[in-house]
Amino acid sequence: MKLKDSLFTRRKFLNTLIGGWLTALGATIIQPVIKFIFPPYREPEEVILPAADYELPGPNSFKTFPWGSKPGILKRNDDGSLTAFVAVCTHLDCNVTYLPEQRKFYCACHDGWYDENGINIAGPPPRPLRRLDVIVEGEKIIIRRKGESA
């Protein structure tokens, strides 16, 4: 049935109403389901390493540490300061290694290369390695996400 000046029929109006309501109901059910399926993001805020285990005597020496579920690399620079990287290639998530003789990071998956500062120099990597902040506090080495040091 359609009234003389109406834009749509009564059936169309009711169908839209019921359809819209069902869509809204469906959305309120789907939203938590999707939120549930994706696990909470679990990158650590900071990682504390005992300084005794990470002495790194000479320049250009390095050691790996666990950064959540990814490897990290802590490296002694020529000026004696420390730099930390997330040791994961920016290309396709492979773990990288540091080659001290060549002063380069190397990713074996697709032959990707980074210089000693983590800058991508050869192969497919699109971005430099991710850097982390390093703070030495007495017996502890605190490694934090970049820019979040208090």
């Binding site: 938590p32 939120k35 549930f36 994706f38 696990p39 909470p40």
Partner: peptide
């Protein structure tokens, strides 16, 4: 405690 809506599900 950790998963979103985990306790509800």
């Amino acid at each position: 405690t950790e998963v979103s809506y985990g306790w509800v599900i």
